[in-house]
């Protein structure tokens, strides 16, 4: 029995983190609405936060929780720039579907 399975809360947190990340990844692959794709990326970032906090508790350290703080800050910056790009795309194409964004396809 390894150190993860000895701690049921850690194992469960890692499974939750993996599940949320996989669901978000599926959404990024499948959906074609740019807003929903950004929302799914936020879901994936949250999933990473869960495993940081879980390992931080399991190793009785605080560095994981600090990493969570920095990730949330980067997520805020990312969503601000992403939504700015979204507004620029909507202004030029009158639509935010990825199906129409084929300018670089060649």
């Amino acid at each position: 029995m390894n150190f993860i399975l000895k701690d049921p809360m850690l194992a469960q947190s890692l499974l939750l983190s993996g599940a949320l990340f996989s669901i978000g990844l599926f959404g990024v692959f499948v959906r074609r609405n740019l807003i929903v794709i950004l929302i799914c990326i936020e879901l994936m970032l949250t999933a990473v936060n869960i495993s940081f906090v879980a390992f931080s508790r399991a190793n009785s350290s605080l560095d994981g929780q600090l990493a969570t703080f920095f990730i949330v800050t980067v997520a805020a910056a990312e969503s601000a720039v992403g939504l700015g790009l979204l507004i620029a795309i909507f202004r030029n194409l009158k639509e935010v579907g990825t199906a129409t964004l084929t300018g670089l396809k060649g």
């Binding site: 390894n2 993860i4 499974l15 993996g18 990844l25 599926f26 692959f29």
Partner: peptide, 18 residues
């Protein structure tokens, strides 16, 4: 793609070393 990622997490939970 997403299920294979979840499989990696399952493998880590089952086999991970500190």
């Amino acid at each position: 793609g997403s299920l294979s990622f979840f499989g990696v997490i399952l493998f880590v939970v089952a086999e991970g070393q500190s």
